[in-house]
Structure formats: structure tokens, C-alpha cells
């Protein structure tokens, strides 16, 4: 039986007339890794802050394991949320880790030490003297070593180099396999994280524009390019998202899975076919706004 870890219904957050979140609803199953994707300013951080009880909703409700998180000790103590722009008091890395260890019964000092070594994070360094990447690394160490049931990461690897990001992906998967938990992470480095995510939630301008299993999204849309006439012939009767034309060449995105016959036909028409990556899909989803979810549902059904 699967359990719902996070349930969000009609969540709205207004700031001075502007809606940072607008009627957001979704659910996250316990024991899954979910990506919260969207552009800067789409509302990802606000959403995570409300989930963690750091911010208050204007309307709507949030339930974590069935209970509202706001000022709820029983719920909050099972969560960890270290933000990209986390404010720390004036102390050193080791102080932050020592304090975090007091608040989490499952805290793993061994894991914290291993991660510190992996990220080459000096425990004696004052946090305000850390580079952006190192601050991110500190957030990752705390978030992972806490082994909290619900782990929220906001842009966990902002400023980290490619090597450090790979360490994060590897460690996260290893940790998740050994100590399953619910992980919701926001990012805009979508393709890199794609292999990690079981589900994605895409938000844009404060609205959910797409929620889907990551597997279902692979190959759900493809880019087709070639001579205009051939492209038109191939795509006739299909749902199209994007259409560009340069001289006699056209390039379009077709929605819907393609079978072997389609591919053979494309080859004979001398068309180039390439499946859309998750990142490209998200870019299109954001552009298409609310239509996307419907379109995808219709085409994958």
C-alpha cells in the first residue's frame, strides 16, 4: 500500500497583489524522489517554504503525512529543509552540523563526515566565508545526514561544479536505496537530475503545468526536422507544439509516442527524429502553460 507523504490542495500565496502560488494541487507518495521543476521565480522556493512551515499560505491546505505542518512539532521534526539561501548564525561548519545532529534522531555522523570529505568542505571554516558552492554542499550534508522522513532540497547544487554534482547524485541514490524516504527537490538543471527523478512536478508562474511519472515523459514528444513538405506529410493529424521554419527546412515538436512504423516512415522521408529530453519538455510545458497537462493526457492515453 502506498502512503501519501505530501498532499497540497488549492494552495495560493499572494504577495502584494501578485500570486506567487496560484491554486497549486498535487500529491507526493511516501518513499519517492520527486523533482520540482520550473524557471527562476516560478514559485518553487515559496512552495517548499510553505511545506516546511517557514511561510504561511494565503489559501489552500498542506498536509504532511496527513497533518498540517505549520507550528506542528510532530510533523516538522520529521522534515528537513535547508535552503539555497539559508541564513546561518555567525559560526563554523562544524557548529552547524553539531546543532543539526541534536534535532534528528536518525542523524548519521558517519555519513556527514563522508560527505564533508567528498565535497572537501573544511569543518573549521566560518560559514560566511564559504563560497556559494560550498554553502550548497553544507546544505546537502545536513539534508542527507539528517535522514529525515521528508527531505526537501531547494536548488541543492547551486554553484557546485560538475564533479560535486555527480557526487550529490550518486550519494543521494545510494542513501535513498539504503534509507528510503520522501525527497522533493527543486532544480533547473533538469536533464542532469532526470535520471534521479521518479516523478516531476512542473510549475510556472505559480501554477502547476505538469505532473507526471518521469518514465512516462521519456519519448512522449519528439522533435522532427527536415524539408517542409516532408515534415508536413509526416505530422499531418498529429498534435504539434512548436513549429519553426527556415527557408525550405522545418522543425516541429510532435506530441505522442512514435512506433516503429512511424520511425521507418520518417527515415524514408529523410526526416531527423529525436526524442525530447525532460528539459526540453519542461521548456515547452512552461510555454504551453495549462494546455500541456491535457495534451499529454490525451496523447498518452
Amino acid at each position: 500500500m502506498t502512503q501519501t507523504a505530501i498532499s497540497v490542495t488549492g494552495l495560493t500565496r499572494r504577495y502584494h497583489g501578485h500570486r506567487a502560488l496560484d491554486q497549486v494541487s498535487f500529491e507526493v507518495e511516501a518513499g519517492s524522489i520527486v523533482g520540482l521543476l520550473g524557471r527562476n521565480g516560478a514559485g518553487k522556493t515559496t512552495l517548499l517554504r510553505i511545506l516546511a512551515g517557514q511561510e504561511f499560505p494565503s489559501a489552500g491546505s498542506v498536509l504532511i503525512h496527513g497533518a498540517p505542518p505549520t507550528e506542528n512539532e510532530a510533523v516538522l521534526r520529521r522534515m528537513v529543509f535547508v535552503r539555497e539561501d539559508q541564513v546561518y548564525p555567525d559560526f563554523k561548519v562544524r557548529h552547524a552540523l553539531r546543532i543539526a545532529s541534536w534535532f534528528y534522531p536518525n542523524w548519521s555522523p558517519e555519513l556527514a563526515d563522508a560527505l564533508l570529505a567528498d565535497f572537501e568542505l573544511p569543518p573549521g571554516r566560518a560559514i560566511k566565508k564559504l563560497s556559494r558552492g560550498m554553502r550548497s554542499a553544507l546544505g546537502i550534508v545536513i539534508g542527507m545526514a539528517a535522514r529525515a522522513e521528508v527531505t526537501l532540497f531547494d536548488e541543492p547544487y547551486a554553484g557546485l561544479d560538475a564533479v560535486a554534482r555527480q557526487i550529490f547524485y550518486d550519494r543521494l541514490l545510494a542513501e535513498y536505496a539504503e534509507h528510503p524516504r520522501t525527497i522533493l527537490l527543486s532544480t533547473h538543471l533538469i536533464d542532469e537530475a532526470a535520471g534521479l527523478l521518479e516523478r516531476v512536478i512542473v510549475i510556472d508562474h505559480g501554477r502547476v503545468v505538469l505532473t507526471a511519472d518521469a518514465d512516462d515523459l521519456r519519448g512522449v514528444a519528439s522533435a522532427v526536422s527536415g524539408p517542409v513538405l516532408a515534415v508536413d506529410e509526416f505530422t499531418a493529424g498529429r498534435v504539434l507544439w512548436d513549429r519553426r521554419r527556415v527557408a525550405s527546412q522545418a522543425s516541429v515538436v510532435v506530441v505522442g509516442a512514435l512506433d516503429e512504423a512511424d520511425r521507418a516512415r520518417a527515415r524514408s522521408l529523410r526526416l531527423e527524429l529525436s526524442p525530447l529530453t525532460l528539459q526540453q519538455l519542461v521548456v515547452h510545458a512552461a510555454a504551453q502553460q495549462a494546455n500541456t497537462a491535457d495534451t499529454l493526457e490525451r496523447t498518452s492515453a
Binding site: 516546511a52 512551515g53 517557514q54 507550528e71 506542528n72 512539532e73 516538522l76 521534526r77 520529521r78 522534515m79 528537513v80 529543509f81 535547508v82 535552503r83 539559508q86 541564513v87 546561518y88 548564525p89 555567525d90 552547524a96 546543532i99 543539526a100 534535532f103 534528528y104 545536513i142 539528517a146 529525515a148
Partner: peptide
């Protein structure tokens, strides 16, 4: 002022 944000990050309530 400076300690509350990290406290809330670790799942402490404002009340506590």
C-alpha cells in the same frame, strides 16, 4: 534574528 532561520530549517517550531 540570526538564529531563527536555521532553527526552522531543522524543523523546530517558532513556539519551541
Amino acid at each position: 534574528g540570526r538564529s531563527l532561520p536555521f532553527g526552522l530549517a531543522l524543523g523546530v517550531t517558532r513556539r519551541s
